[in-house]
Simulated scan of single mutants.
Amino acid sequence: MSEHTQLIDALNVRITTRHYDADPIDPDAARQLESSIDAINTLSGLDIQLVQGHPDVFAADNASGHLANASNYLALVGPKGDPESLEKAGFYGQRLVLTATLYGLGTGWVAGSWDADRARSHCRVTGSQDLYLAITIGPSKTEAAYGSQDYEALCERQRTHRPSKTYEELTAPMEGDARDQAPDWFKAGVEAAAKAPSAMNGQPVLFAYDPVRSDAVARLDPAVSTGSLVDLGIAKLNFQIGAGAGTWLWGDGGRFIRS
């Protein structure tokens, strides 16, 4: 893959990886990733862990061809029964996904393609914690196939990789005039959120610009049954990167405070 140095670059080229190389993660990349994980855990109160060399967690899907050579994962662990931490797992998990992209690694959010009990046996989960879900990670056959392509070609690959909702669909709560007159930072945030992964590609997060408060609001779309707080967190992270300076308040209906 071409070298990228900004999170927005990673956001613009990253696609879900299902086929991995059998080689282990490069030790230098693993150390850098562990450093990023430590910083995020301190900031978020989560206990995200990099677990390597356990293909048994993905044995069924590796055997079926849904995945290939999946053996490493980010275990998203956090406080049990805490909705805010679920959203943070999406937000900060996506931050690590984009960081891994900058290190040349493939990633894939996992909901059903894993053995959660086996995954728990390979990571730390205390009695007060849950293993929310996992993110496969590793050297990627998919990315290796595009290693000679430039940034623009990789962006085009992502654009055509899967269907995406339009700006109008993702801002459905807004009236037409308000939608058109929203500031550029809001439009850029929605454009970035449109590239966020989500369960079953449901893209269940809707955004609205509030002209009175000059901020934005994100809500789960009740019409999308697959939507979750993890999806909300992922979409918020992408929006924040696209919009630039600003901070989200947690929760369904949380506001993006532009700074």
Rank of each mutant, 00 (worst) to 15 (best):
H4D: 11
L7W: 13
I8H: 13
I8N: 11
A10T: 06
A10Q: 08
N12E: 12
I15Q: 08
T16C: 10
D21M: 11
I25E: 04
D28P: 00
A29V: 08
A30N: 07
E34T: 13
D38C: 09
N41P: 12
N41D: 14
N41F: 13
N41A: 14
T42D: 15
I48A: 10
Q49T: 07
Q52T: 15
H54W: 14
H54M: 12
F58C: 04
F58L: 07
A59Y: 11
N62H: 09
N62Q: 11
S64T: 15
G65F: 03
A68W: 08
A70H: 04
N72Y: 04
L74T: 08
L74R: 08
G81T: 10
E84Q: 13
L86D: 12
E87D: 12
K88L: 14
A89G: 08
Q94C: 07
L96R: 09
T99E: 15
T101R: 14
Y103M: 15
T107L: 00
G108T: 06
V110K: 00
V110H: 01
A111S: 15
A111P: 01
W114K: 02
W114V: 08
D115A: 11
R118G: 04
A119P: 04
R120W: 02
S121V: 04
C123R: 04
C123V: 10
V125W: 00
V125K: 05
S128V: 08
Q129A: 04
I137R: 04
I137Y: 04
G138F: 00
P139N: 15
T142A: 13
A145L: 12
Y146V: 01
S148E: 12
S148P: 01
D150R: 02
Y151D: 06
Y151V: 08
E152H: 12
L154C: 01
C155H: 02
E156K: 08
R159F: 06
R159Y: 05
H161T: 07
H161Q: 07
H161M: 01
H161C: 03
H161I: 01
R162V: 10
R162W: 03
K165I: 05
K165S: 05
T166G: 05
Y167H: 08
Y167P: 00
T171Y: 05
A172N: 08
A172E: 14
P173D: 03
R179H: 14
Q181F: 09
W185H: 05
W185C: 00
W185S: 01
K187L: 05
V190T: 02
E191Q: 10
E191V: 02
A192Q: 06
P197M: 02
S198G: 02
N201W: 06
N201I: 02
V205C: 00
V205F: 00
F207G: 01
D210Y: 02
R213P: 00
S214G: 09
L220P: 03
D221N: 15
P222A: 07
V224Y: 01
V224I: 12
S225C: 05
L229S: 02
L229G: 01
D231G: 04
D231V: 03
D231K: 00
L237V: 00
N238T: 11
N238R: 07
N238Y: 15
F239M: 11
Q240K: 13
A243E: 11
G246S: 13
T247D: 13
T247K: 15
W248N: 10
L249E: 15
D252I: 10
G253R: 12
R255D: 11
F256R: 11
I257N: 13
S259Y: 06
